[in-house]
Amino acid sequence: MAYRSIFRPDLFEGQVILVTGGGSGIGRCVAHELAALGARLVIAGRDPEKLARVADEIESEGYSVDTLCCNIRSEVEVAAMIEGVLALHGRLDGLVNNAGGQFHAPLADISAKGFEAVVSTNLTGGFIVMREAYRQWMQGHGGAIVNMSADIWMGLPGFAHSAASRAGMESLTQSAAAEWAGSGVRVNTVAPGMITSSGFDNYEGAGVDQIRAYPERVPAKRYGTVAEVSAAIVFLLSPAAAYITGSCLRVDGGSPNGRHGQALKQVKGLPAFDGFHLSSTPVLFEESNRT
């Protein structure tokens, strides 16, 4: 099998694209699609074993990929990562600024340390990565950056620290889009709703309950797929988005539009697209794990 992208196979031929957080979830899917579309791909993350597994998957399908280990919260490591991309390929055309993380907790129970850890990863770390990509290459050569946001539009109970950091990324993206357009750099965000991925299996208790209840209040009546998020990212990286910068592309099944208290009585929702040939069902959805 091969990735079933809707985009033409040579879309990114000759272009170098870096995907942070490329060892799992959305980043893994994006890496597969970009490789299938001809990109000279580099994936980065903190866990070398995860990166190696994804690299093996991609290489087994006849594509090439390089891996770089990096903690995006470290300015030194991020600078070295971008230097590494340039040493390997001599250019950097696109950045998928995907690395991040959060945990489920009521706002009153989040410690300052826990709050700062999430903000440091999702916002400060993302800032460092895009700044270094700009400083070391894109300022003089142009490029496209896609940052990661989330479905934060009316708050995100249970993940308030993550919502705060993603809201900051929205503002940061708009500022960068204005400041960097003169260098030929486009900066946008993708804001996923609840997307079916291995990340679901990091939660327990109330977090699992929140995930399972999600489709009932979403107009699309389902979760999203990683392939749907990947397609949005690929579009924003592509020449078709040449006049789009400082914008956010929501991939959320209309979730914010279903939060007005009305009963969503429709039985059928919107059909899914899943072009990722290696996608799998999170463990929490397996029948034996339901209570």
Rank of each mutant, 00 (worst) to 15 (best):
N122G: 03
E61F: 10
S64V: 08
R73L: 13
G94A: 06
E204D: 08
A112T: 13
Y214I: 00
F127V: 13
G158H: 05
L123N: 11
S165H: 10
F235E: 02
V267T: 14
S238L: 14
M194W: 08
N202D: 14
A99Y: 10
H161K: 04
G142W: 08
R73G: 14
H277V: 09
S111T: 15
V185L: 06
V187C: 10
V30Q: 14
I195C: 01
P106C: 09
R186Y: 10
H277T: 09
A150R: 11
T121P: 11
V218T: 06
V129M: 03
L51W: 01
L270I: 11
E49L: 08
L278D: 10
D209I: 04
S5G: 15
F159W: 06
V251T: 01
E216D: 12
R46V: 01
F7A: 12
E179C: 15
G184D: 03
A2I: 05
G207P: 11
A2Y: 09
R290K: 09
E75V: 03
M81T: 04
A79R: 14
R46I: 00
S175F: 09
R28A: 00
E132C: 08
S279G: 11
L236Y: 12
L95K: 02
A31S: 12
F276M: 00
A206V: 06
A164P: 06
Q210G: 15
D10W: 10
N289E: 05
A108M: 09
L34G: 11
F7Q: 14
Y214A: 00
G62P: 07
S74E: 05
Y243I: 10
G45S: 14
F200L: 04
A80H: 01
N202K: 13
D209S: 13
N188Q: 12
H277C: 08
L68K: 11
R28S: 01
I43F: 05
M1C: 10
M138F: 11
I233Q: 05
S162V: 05
I195Y: 05
P157E: 13
R166N: 03
A117L: 15
E59C: 10
T291W: 04
V96D: 00
I6P: 07
G224N: 03
I244A: 05
S120T: 04
L264S: 02
P106R: 11
A241M: 08
V208S: 02
E77N: 02
Q139I: 06
T245W: 00
W180M: 12
G261R: 12
